[in-house]
Simulated scan of single mutants.
Amino acid sequence: MRKLLKPVDSALDVFNVCIGRVRSTDLKSRLLACSREIESSSIEFDQKAPNSQLHTILSKDNVANSVTVDEMKAVYTDRMAKKLAPGRIYYDRLMSLPEHARCPLCSQRVVSTLDHHLPKAHFPSLAVSPFNLIPACQDCNKTKSEGIPTCSAEETLHPYYDDVESFVWIRARLIETVPVAIEFYVDPPDDCDPILAERLKNHFKSFGLAALYASHAAEELASVEYIAKRVFDNGGSVELQRHLVETASGKRAVNLNSWQSALYCCLSENNWFCEARFE
């Protein structure tokens, strides 16, 4: 997962802009009655997210006993996400947060939508809260669905609040076959907070990252083995290992926990691959 800068726009400001063009007097009145809850819910989210306590936020089927879930969904869909909608400026601002437009949840695919970290179907007061809206790829958005965490360990990582880029936690293991195969797994450091360690594993599982990374790695391995054989033929196992170590170092300089970093670190540390694979 890649860290993102936390949005600075307030949920109340976004909400007020989104409902600014509502023509129905009744609906506009009921939406305005939600303002206090919209603001307080976003504040609660901001206070609990850093401490892995989002699971303690109670789900609801309305906002301020005035607006239904479907009506709040419509505020997001029709008045924020839709092109030319009054709140579209905030939608686009959130979508521009990831570097190179890469999904922060999988670190692989291109962002194409906003994911509600806590689903709007169960937390309607957070439907347009920037803290609850994460730029994501379509696959991650669909994979996560509308599941609700019941404890800290079940909370997936949140790019605005969780920083897991300073230590290695995604690794790979080599399956010594011809051609070779790779499996990816989570291996937090020994000093990692136990709850965070469980969240790392849950995030990896929830978004199907093992299968995603294995798929991409399988495609790259064909070229890796071709180059590795040439290096081995020219310089032996010592030169091959040096080549793989340097490649891994370059990948880690970009992203410690990319599948590429895990792949090349695994290959460089595997004696069979460096010494026997190409004999």
Rank of each mutant, 00 (worst) to 15 (best):
Leu4Met: 13
Val8Pro: 05
Ala11Gln: 02
Val17Phe: 06
Cys18Pro: 14
Arg23Trp: 04
Arg30Met: 01
Leu31Glu: 14
Ser40Trp: 02
Ile43Ser: 03
Glu44Asn: 09
His55Glu: 04
Ile57Lys: 06
Leu58Cys: 00
Ser59Gly: 13
Ala64His: 15
Val67Arg: 09
Val67Asp: 02
Met72Gln: 08
Lys73Trp: 02
Val75Pro: 14
Asp78Ile: 01
Arg79Asp: 01
Pro86Gln: 06
Gly87Asp: 09
Arg88Cys: 10
Ile89Tyr: 13
Leu94Gln: 11
Glu99Pro: 03
His100Ile: 03
Ala101Trp: 04
Cys106His: 02
Ser107Asn: 15
Gln108Asn: 11
Thr113Leu: 09
Ala121Thr: 14
Ala127Leu: 12
Ser129Trp: 05
Phe131Ser: 14
Ile134His: 07
Ala153Ser: 09
Glu155Leu: 07
Pro159His: 01
Val164Gly: 01
Glu165Asn: 11
Ile170His: 05
Val178Met: 15
Val178Gly: 01
Asp187Phe: 08
Asp187Tyr: 08
Asp187Val: 05
Pro189Ile: 03
Pro194Ser: 11
Pro194Thr: 06
His203Ile: 00
Lys205Ser: 05
Ala217Asn: 00
Leu221Asn: 00
Ala222Thr: 13
Arg230Ala: 04
Phe232Leu: 10
Ser249Lys: 14
Arg252Gln: 15
Asn257Leu: 07
Gln260Tyr: 05
Cys265Asn: 14
Cys274Pro: 04
Phe278Ile: 13
